[in-house]
């Protein structure tokens, strides 16, 4: 790892100010992706601004069907939240399968979303839930937030402070883990809302990162049933291809995971 200056911010404002003074700074929360990247000398920020100790970025609020999760909330906290489980168990289940138990104790929802790893789990849920990504400057709809591999709508120095969404009537996430890394090779989050509409977020498989699958959404909106997906095609041209599976295989996985998610959502 290259040398770096570590700063611990105690407020969002302080974090923003520290970042503005840094030459080439990066925010760090759990650090579960950033620190391995720095260890491999693939990232060399001049400064790290730690967001884990900012009280206003922590915690979970559920008011009626509205769920708000502080960006510095860990995967373990989301997985174990009885409040969220009451209204949106799918997101708890997703969080409980990110990484491993030790990673879940450190990794945060904000970090995962800001990094937008094409194989990360949360982006699929954010897309499917139609979540709002709240920053220190604005609120960004998930559809507008994720912009391809490791790219987001975040501007320099912008900090995700929380995410919020209205709990769907039904939702579930099904993940097919890469046999080596255990990241998603195909992860599909399906959500059905009280107006009968369905949103489907797909991670891990797309060559351009997380995406929504319109064909599946239409099919499931008209018939909320795993079988409704039989006739839907997944475009192989959009799929990643690597040593772990070619595009045809990934396209198959997307469909199978979608069907399993629908079945799990009930």
């Amino acid at each position: 790892m290259y040398d770096v200056n570590y700063h611990r911010a105690s407020s969002v404002e302080e974090a923003a100010s520290l970042m503005s003074r840094a030459e080439d700074g990066k925010f760090v929360a759990g650090g579960q992706t950033l620190i391995p990247t720095m260890k491999q000398r693939l990232a060399a920020p001049s400064d790290l601004i730690d967001l884990r100790h900012i009280a206003s970025m922590k915690g979970i609020r559920v008011e009626g069907g509205k769920v708000t999760i502080g960006a510095a909330t860990t995967h373990a906290e989301v997985a174990g939240s009885a409040d969220i489980a009451r209204v949106c168990p799918g997101i708890c289940s997703l969080a409980s399968h990110i990484g491993d138990p030790a990673v879940r104790h450190m990794g945060t929802i904000g970090g995962s979303i800001a990094n937008n790893d094409p194989a990360a789990d949360y982006p699929a849920a954010m897309m499917a839930l139609g979540a709002d990504i709240v920053t220190n400057k604005r609120t960004i709809a998930a559809d507008d937030f994720f912009a391809g591999l490791f790219e987001t709508a975040l501007e320099d120095g912008e900090i995700i402070t929380s995410v919020s969404f209205s709990a769907p009537v039904k939702c579930a996430y099904a993940k097919f883990a890469n046999p080596a890394s255990r990241y998603a090779m195909a992860g599909v989050f399906v959500a059905r809302f009280d107006d009968g509409s369905v949103r489907v977020g797909v991670t891990g498989a797309g060559s351009d990162g997380v995406f929504r699958h319109k064909g599946m959404e239409d099919a499931l909106t008209s018939d909320w049933n795993a079988g409704a997906l039989d006739g839907v095609s997944v475009d192989e041209g959009m799929m990643l291809s690597d040593i772990h599976g070619d595009a045809a295989y990934r396209a198959n996985l997307v469909k199978v995971m979608a069907k399993r998610a629908v079945a799990a959502a009930g």
Binding site: P179, A180, S181, Y183, I243, H244
Partner: peptide, 22 residues
């Protein structure tokens, strides 16, 4: 079931960490 050391045709080891070597 899992393990495979894979080189590209030009000799780069693709499976050089636990991210790719299962």
């Amino acid at each position: 079931l899992l393990e495979h050391g894979i080189y590209t045709e030009d000799g780069q080891l693709v499976t050089a960490s636990y991210m790719d070597y299962a």
